[in-house]
């Protein structure tokens, strides 16, 4: 009998779980997306409908198209805000110092906080009667004083984005800090000796070397934004109306409020396609040799 090489039995448990818990559902959902299955009516999958679920999504479901639009706004604003804050904060606290290392340690806190709790908390802070953030923002920006945040489509979207940025920007700051730390200090010093002002050092030497890390941050944050569900569910419930209903939230609604499994699987696959494309970008960025 041939001996089984050690890497096979070392890999077998983990890989079979990954296959069962991730790859199998990936295939199953794809199959499901070609079938009709209203769970409320029947416990078993219904007829094969080909691409009808997909066709319905794009041709006759304004709610899906709105969700696409909301997703685009949410992801774009979320990624840009997170990148800007993470880069700014990282540059600010990269120097040694007691306050800066305190800030670095505190950056972990929002990241390990339950996103559901963050959504709930932001909802509380924005309450028009006794919300502390509603009150403070009203004092700083009088134009917003009387507005009910979660009843206004634009403000609600801003609130949802803000809660997600609060959750992720500190973590991304740590990632950017890691990137800054990996830049050889001598290159920045050489630039200063060569006559570069602080701004020129940043523009010509620091930023170009940081770009790969910023790329990783951008792709990762895009992925997390596309998958964002908890904060939206607990903060705005996708509302007012469907103003903050992103694709991930839409899939949940179709599957577990309308119990339209085939249709949900089709919508989920639109999201999956986007994420798989991003994962290729991500793997290229991280594993390029």
């Amino acid at each position: 009998m041939r001996r089984i090489p050690p890497h096979v039995w070392l890999l077998a448990p983990a890989l079979s779980f990954v296959a069962a818990m991730a790859l199998f559902p990936l295939g199953y959902s794809l199959v499901l997306s070609f079938r009709e299955w209203k769970l409320a009516a029947s416990g078993a999958p219904g007829a094969w409908v080909g691409l009808a679920n997909y066709w319905l999504l794009v041709s006759d479901d304004p709610e899906f198209l709105e969700a696409l639009a909301a997703t685009a706004v949410f992801v774009a604003a979320d990624v840009i805000a997170t990148l800007a804050i993470a880069l700014g904060a990282a540059l600010l606290i990269k120097r040694a110092g007691r306050i800066n290392s305190l800030a670095r340690v505190l950056m972990i806190l929002p990241f390990v906080m339950s996103p559901a709790l963050i959504g709930i908390s932001f909802r509380f802070f924005l309450n028009p009667e006794f919300g502390i953030a509603h009150h403070l923002i009203g004092m700083l920006v009088p134009a917003l004083a009387g507005r009910v945040w979660l009843a206004d489509p634009t403000l609600a979207m801003i609130a949802v984005i803000a809660s997600d940025v609060w959750h992720w920007a500190p973590y991304m700051t740590l990632v950017v800090l890691g990137g800054l730390a990996s830049i050889p200090q001598e290159t920045e010093e050489a630039a200063r000796v060569d006559g570069a002002s602080p701004w020129a050092v940043f523009r010509d030497v620091t930023l170009p070397q940081l770009l790969p890390v910023l790329g990783v941050v951008a792709v990762l944050k895009t992925v997390f934004a596309l998958k964002a569900f908890d904060t939206i569910y607990t903060l705005s419930n996708g509302g007012p109306g469907t103003a903050t209903q992103t694709l991930a939230y839409f899939v949940y609604q179709v599957a577990f409020n309308h119990y339209d499994m085939g249709y949900a699987a089709a919508a989920a696959y639109v999201l999956t396609a986007a994420l798989l494309v991003l994962s290729v970008f991500y793997l290229r960025l991280v594993f390029r040799k």
Binding site: L10, L15, P25, M261, T272, S279
Partner: peptide
């Protein structure tokens, strides 16, 4: 270890994080 398909297997494991939760939970639900 070095073995055939190692890089591909590893990338599949890493990429599986990107599958949306809804896709995973639907079949298992």
């Amino acid at each position: 270890f070095e073995f055939r398909g190692k890089q591909a297997l590893f990338l599949v494991v890493i990429a599986s994080q990107f599958i949306p939760a809804a896709v995973i939970v639907l079949p298992y639900f």
